[in-house]
Design a protein around this nucleic acid. Structure first.
Lengths: 147, 147
DNA sequence: TTTAAATGTAATACTACTTGTTTCATCTGA
DNA sequence: TCAGATGAAACAAGTAGTATTACATTTAAA
């Protein structure tokens, strides 16, 4: 299993919007160019981010605006916004045999442990935020200038 | 994204093998019945577990044997044995634009953070082992007897 | 008020993965 | 020897991820 590219693309979208926001109008076309993907892919992700309340978009000669400071947008916020099945990390086999003592009780013996792991994974995602990414981007760009 | 059913099935296989191992011969057919799946699915998972050195299987009137105490088989050992792309939890978009300062540097700004999260997730998986599951199974079965 | 430029969304296509099934070769303890 | 088990190949169906085209809708600005 893998977290889909939607996750890293969404972080790219937020970081690039902050990075370019003051100088240029940020559109799905510009973002698609930076990301190396298709504008419709970006618009779908923009739609996810908007439903999650992380950005606002406008039609017409529109553009994207971010609704709150990036240090208040964690990786988990982004993950939650774009990822499917975010509420069930582990896909349990569905038909354990109720006539078998193991099949009948495997859920009771396993669910709490899987829930633990999922909760810890979500906490791990919350330890990072998008502001860190923008900060490191500026650091990289400055290093380029000096070279 | 979801961890595939192979993971919970593999834990079921190990737990059931321990649970029944002393009384009955444990075969892919018996396990498939307990799990509610197909014997070939189980045999493929058995093959993964065998490659990882967690079990040994024999042909003929064979059966499965576990190679080390279950408290030394963590959820991560099982995850590593059966899951694809286990080495790269996050699927990064592949073609960021090198002509764009963000596209050119997004990997440098993001990779270390994603590696952190992956490492922590793996640690979370290592906190649990299959012996706990068997212990809880016996507890559930004993509770059934009293009722 | 018009219009260029942007988002919103539906439809399609391709690929890869997951899960299930059938079939048959191969092995091995009794 | 042989019944009973694993090993493995082939196939099918369903789902998810990614990419693309096309068009309707909106809106700031000319």
């Amino acid at each position: 299993m893998q977290v889909s590219t939607k996750f890293t693309i969404a972080i790219h979208v937020l970081a690039a919007t902050e990075f370019f926001g003051n100088e240029e109008k940020v559109t799905s076309k510009l973002l698609a160019s930076s990301i190396g993907s298709n504008p419709v892919i970006i618009r779908n992700i923009m739609s996810d981010l908007q439903k999650a309340g992380l950005i606002e978009t406008k039609r017409g000669p529109g553009g994207i605006s971010i609704t709150r400071p990036l240090d208040q947008i964690t990786f988990y916020d982004v993950y939650e916004a774009v990822e499917k099945n975010k509420d069930q990390l582990f896909n349990f086999h569905e038909n354990p045999n109720p006539a078998c003592p193991v099949g009948r009780n495997i859920h009771a013996a396993l669910d709490d442990k899987l829930d633990d792991i999922q909760r810890e994974f979500e906490e791990d995602l919350k330890k990072h935020n998008v502001a860190e990414v923008v900060h490191d981007l500026h650091q990289e760009v400055n290093a380029e200038k000096q070279a």
